[in-house]
Amino acid sequence: MEVFQELSQKLVFPIDYKSQKYIGKQMNVAIAAVGIAATVYGYMTGSIQNLLICYIAGLLGTCIWLVPAYPAYRKHNLKFVEKPVINITTD
């Protein structure tokens, strides 16, 4: 069980509200674009199979683009207040 806990902790991304909001928006746009492109391509070729292949390929692309936590999506990590450093001098 400890192994699973470690694993799930690693899967949790650093808190970065700005990037997460950006990903949410991009995901909507990307899926709509992929869907429309697949539909148009399928309609032009007159084949539902082509539509399905195109849609699934597009979704895999979107998955690779938006799902993992790339460094670009970790730029705005929350910075917690650091402990003030107090210099105590002793004579």
């Binding site: 899967l11 808190i15 995901m27 909507n28 899926i31 539909t39 979704l59 998955c63 799902v67």
Partner: peptide
């Protein structure tokens, strides 16, 4: 959107929702 599995689930959700529109178009 804070973990890998949740982000993946959101993507699949959106894809299934959009596929309803594609089916309606077909």
């Amino acid at each position: 959107m804070f973990s890998l599995s949740q982000r993946f689930q959101v993507l699949i959700n959106q894809a299934v929702t959009f596929s309803v529109f594609i089916i309606a178009f077909i």
